[in-house]
């Protein structure tokens, strides 16, 4: 694993830990729903941590292939989330809309960080 990947993995680990900590604190403060939102965020970071490790296994030493694999997934995965967001928006389901927008915001943040680390723009 090269330095950039390590940096990205560290970023994801820190985010996961921070979300879990906030979730715990919010739940203890009887803010269960907000605690669950943090779990949703942590989940998205965890998905991309898994993708990073899959990229490592699939692409072995090919750094460029790893980056491509990761960027492809980061574009692919939120497609269904965007559809879902539009669907719940049509039905004015504020609760689900909020959860879908948390997922989409988190993935955007991951994407920005990914670009920043690999010093590349889409």
């Amino acid at each position: 694993m090269n330095k950039k990947q390590q940096e990205f993995e560290l970023y994801l680990d820190e985010k996961i830990a921070a979300c879990k900590q906030r979730s715990k604190r919010l739940t203890a403060d009887d803010r269960t729903d907000e605690g669950n939102f943090e779990k949703v965020r942590a989940n998205v970071y965890e998905i991309f941590k898994t993708i990073l490790s899959v990229a490592e296994k699939v692409c072995k030493e090919d750094e460029l292939a790893k980056k491509r694999f990761f960027l492809q997934k980061i574009e692919q995965i939120p497609t269904s989330w965007t559809i879902s967001y539009e669907k719940v928006k049509q039905h004015k389901d504020v609760e689900k809309m909020h959860i879908e927008s948390i997922k989409l915001d988190t993935i955007q943040e991951i994407k920005d960080k990914c670009m920043q680390i690999w010093e590349e723009t889409v």
Binding site: D33, E34, F37, V94, E95, M97, H98, S101
Partner: peptide, 13 residues
């Protein structure tokens, strides 16, 4: 000190 979407979520409930 919460985000507007979080407030909307709670108001819906």
């Amino acid at each position: 000190d919460l985000t507007a979407p979080t407030i909307s979520f709670h108001l819906k409930k």
